[in-house]
Design a binder for these strands. Structure first.
Lengths: 343, 343
DNA sequence: TCTTAGCACTCTCATAGTGGGAGTGCTAAC
DNA sequence: GTTAGCACTCCCACTATGAGAGTGCTAAGA
């Protein structure tokens, strides 16, 4: 266990390093954070902390920087509960109180404000469609030979596809078909739907095979898509403002990962699985490209239903207190967004 | 006018510089491109070309690099018509012959393959919604108090919004209302629609004011949105592979511009306004952030209707012949995509 | 036993000097 | 008009060099 003074030294080092991005020396601590002891004493404490794994030394005669473990200790036990400035809260509210009624748009505003408020890279994962439930499906005739197929999930997420319409099928037939299907499938998970629809197709609706096939393929595409949850990102350019990413190769690695959605989904999904705000520090993510980064994320719901996950990716040396607070704030505003609008 | 030998020197310099990213010296040209004259003669030609504005010298005793004007001359008059390798053509075909029936998805595949095939940053602008024509609008009742409003444009672009549904309105009423509206508005530009719908609302349909207001606001949002055309990008990370963007600040400036959609829209829109492939070189774009880049772009249509613009952003020192060919290839495949599917 | 001052030591970083290499422009001869 | 020769310029990579920051250790003091 860390005694009181070690804790104060650790906190000082984390906070100073977060602020300056420079390794912190014993003199600096003695001067700026008045612990009432001399640099020599602090040096001893730092040597202890290093041995215990909380600190690292870039090279023999540099100051110390926090290790992953050091950050972890700070985040779990030392980090102050931060209340956001009125302006930040205000800007978040404003961004999410737009009059938009479309979830996709709302998410896009959210990811942007998340990045603006933290100055880091913000990421949002759309709803996990495989877990979504069928709400309804409908076909909108466009012209003689084609129609727009529309799938709505319980969260209000919309997927559409252009399909061929058999010429011998009237608009009423089409509408009736999907009315019927919608009644039969409502509330089922999309995966179950695909099975169920196949059964229905074979048993009773074989007359409408071609249209049904298209409907099935939309259902399957929606669930099985490698791109299961859509990924929204904002603020990639901001990464470069961090001194630790001025190294082009690091920056490139991170960018590459962000563009390669699947890795991103995996990382965020494995970290975030509840509505509390969680932090993954450096190597904890297990992904090589972002071993110098931390990820702060949580799930969010819109109008009371689980809608996705939001996360901020920044350098390990990030302002965890602030980022956590911002993430929490955006999360809570999203939950209540649209509520008065539509369910 | 440039005499034959000057032209050959210019071509050699452009092509060598594109290949190596190093200023090209007279010796190199004499050795690699057998013009049958000595370095000294080439030096004289280069001095002339520099005076005429086609070449630049990074510093007194370096080789020459092409100026914007030099590239321009090359692109306009020297660039060979390149036929793409079978593999590249194949990969483009494959990417765009996916079974998807949704325009948005198709565009996403297109932007990805555009970047993969060129190794530069690829950009696609979605259809210009203000120029789009109304095809139909429809409302899908979701539950007692809400419905999904769907707007389809002639190109097959879909916009949706969640709206409140007056409790006293039956599903049939709702459907009838939009059937009627769709008949009245079909073929009009979205802007005209907004006006027209207002008139209709005031003259005949004032009973449905609340729903109509929502429909109007969707129409307006679709046209007036600052984000008029949606911007799709792919391959940002690839920018860093270019030696000229290993300078973090340059890379950041470009990335920043890419994230700031509006500038991007403006640049692409001002360059590209026809179905031929156009090239904008360096300063020609007039945008500071990309003065070291060139943009190759064109309009494309899907299923015979103008659908958007596609562009590749790379360093000035890019392989213009190849990029032009790729852009043209993607453009042509897009035009014929979906054609057999739905119109 | 804990704390502290002192000091030698290490390591980085910015600076300046140096030499090689690449390329030029000019001149004079072909 | 072309070419060889040559002096000149400029960049760049390499190597000191020294200042600065910070450490660990030791020994003395509380």
């Amino acid at each position: 266990m860390l005694d009181d003074r070690k804790v104060r030294v650790l906190r000082a080092i984390v906070e100073d390093y977060v602020l300056t991005a420079e390794p912190v020396g014993s003199r600096t601590i003695a001067r700026k954070y008045n612990l009432g002891v001399s640099p020599a004493t602090i040096r001893n404490e730092m040597a202890d902390l290093e041995e215990m794994g909380y600190l690292e030394q870039p090279h023999t005669s540099a100051g110390r920087i926090p290790s992953d473990l050091g950050y972890r200790y700070y985040v779990d036990r030392l980090m102050p509960e931060q209340t956001l400035s009125a302006e930040v809260v205000e800007s978040i509210h404003q961004a999410l109180e737009q009059k938009t009624r479309e979830i996709q748009d709302l998410i896009q505003y959210a990811v942007r404000v998340l990045s603006d408020a933290t100055n880091y890279l913000a990421l949002v994962l759309g709803p996990q469609l495989s877990a979504a439930r069928f709400h309804r499906m409908s076909a909108l005739p466009l012209d003689a030979g084609s129609a727009l197929l529309i799938l709505v999930t319980d969260v209000g997420f919309v997927e559409t596809a252009l399909i061929n319409k058999p010429v011998d099928m009237t608009d009423d037939d089409l509408q009736g078909l999907f009315e019927y299907l919608s009644r039969r499938l409502r509330g089922l998970s999309l995966e179950t739907c695909a099975h169920e629809a196949t059964t229905i197709l074979n048993s009773e609706l074989s007359a409408y095979r071609s249209v049904m096939e298209e409907a099935l393929s939309l259902l399957r595409a929606t669930t099985e898509d490698e791109g299961e949850e859509r990924v929204y990102a904002s603020g990639t350019a901001r990464l470069f403002e961090q001194p630790e990413f001025r190294d082009v190769d690091k920056a490139k690695a991170i960018l590459g990962m962000v563009e390669h959605d699947q890795t991103l989904r995996d990382v965020i999904n494995s970290l975030v699985n509840e509505e509390t705000v969680l932090v993954s520090i450096g190597g904890e993510t297990g992904v090589r490209e972002i071993r110098d980064c931390s990820l702060v994320g949580t799930m969010f719901s819109i109008g009371g239903r689980a809608a996705g996950k939001l996360a901020v990716l920044g350098p390990k040396r990030m302002d965890y207190a602030k980022v956590t607070a911002v993430v929490r704030c955006v999360q809570s505003r999203l939950s209540s967004a649209l509520r008065k609008g539509a369910g």
